[in-house]
Design a binder for these strands. Sequence first.
RNA 1: GGUGGCGUAGCCAAGUGGUAAGGCACGAGUCUGCAAAACUCCUAUUCGUCGGUUCGAUUCCGACCGCCACCUCCA
Length: 485
Amino acid sequence: MGLKIYNSLSRQLEEFSPLTEGHVSMYSCGPTVYDYIHIGNARTALVTDIIRRYLTYKGYTVKLVQNLTDIDDKIIARAQTLGTSSSQLAHTNGEAYFEDTQRLGIQLADVHPKATEHIPEMIDLIQTLIDKGAAYVVDGSVYYRVNSFNEYGKLSRRKPEDLLAGARVEVDERKEDPRDFDMWKAAKPGEPYWDSPWGPGRPGWHIECSSMAMKHLGETIDIHAGGEDLLFPHHENEIAQSELATGKPFARYWVHVAFLKIDGTRMGKSEQNFIFLRDALDKYPAEVIRHFLISAHYRHPLDYSLESLQKSESALRRLKNCLETLKKYEEETPEVTDGNSSTLRDVSDADTTLLSAIETMQSQFTAAMDNDFNTAQGMGTIFTLVSQINRALGSSNGISDQTFAHAYKVLSETCQVLGIYTMDEQDTAGTAEFLNPLLELLLEIRQDARSQKDWDTSDKIRDRLKQLNIEIQDTHEGSTWKFVS
RNA sequence: GGUGGCGUAGCCAAGUGGUAAGGCACGAGUCUGCAAAACUCCUAUUCGUCGGUUCGAUUCCGACCGCCACCUCCA
């Protein structure tokens, strides 16, 4: 309850209520698969993922559909330079897309429709629009007649005059109106094509999303998300096509994600200043990249830099240390409750204080996320609790194990909504199991040396392991080791 | 030219008509044989500039300066 979403259509924060109670239908514009995706693309995919996770956390049943544009001019052009087929290129990059996003911890959508698998639906939709007088055929191509939809421009707030004024657009003489856009493109020689009532060709970009969204989610969907660059013309055209065809609202909440910038300007494929997500993932753990990408509100631009990633890495380490310390209580608590009943009662003042801090965090986190998915603010509430827990952990003034176990449960669940605490662990687990006995032995030898104040041997072991990226830490309870990168 | 947005400490970044969340870095401590790690504490009389409205503005209005984006394929 209480979720507010900024709707680009009304340009206001609106109370969210789905069309069907308890269920949310969501469509997110996916990639055009002519290349790997870059971090900027990942930002939109990640925001979509987090919106979905949060809605699920709030108890909604979410159906998320994200398309793959697997036929388009760029794919054709790229395939030609690479000497491969469009379909092969699209397939390869489509697979790469799933691989990359999953590495980032983005969960698969419920449906990932591909444009090339929905040609009949698109033809139907185009035909409907022709029948309604909203489209016309020229030389085997079909254009949408913008003039036939009098609400055209309602999303981007652009008046016809404005659109024509700047007019850097090449005017296609065959169009009735420069604003008209193609829904079906007649195939040129050598291009891939599908048969249609208007001749061989391929669908335009906008019609893909209209028909795939409606096929999988119905004529009116709750949330439609995408990058802010898609607001015009892509989303405007989707509305024009869909609403004229059905006479119903196409999407109820339009969510637009701001750009990721690099050196102050937009990261974009045409700008040639992008960084592939997979390259970033090779250098930084997924949580770090996630943390960075949601460290600002999704409607504000965010500047990519190595420095920012390093900050995220440090911040996350603080979170993780806290969580890992807490986790021990969670593992031990069941045993404790088995035999000893003493820890079950006697809630001390310190317990109460921490317990209420946990509750405060929960309600503040929810409030932050309810406020148009304010992840930056939500993160703040998490870190506030981390400080409180750390202090409690250090003070050892009679806080029960159960309280800490509870803290672990709540904190980790909250982090999972943002996806910043769940991943990895397993990749090093296998080797750790093998190395464990060996390291134990080394630590034992080192401990013997230390008790005899043989610092040379002790330090030698520590230094040499350090060279192998294994770090030793001496604590009051003995020495521990871990991998460092 | 049209449209939208942004400017908060060294850096990143929330936020509100009533006196500035959080993170990183820095500094000071705790711990330690030393270290590392970890933890604690400290860090903006001030929110681009200048005006206006108000008892009171960083928050509302206006002007100006600077930056970004969309209007063309791009998440």
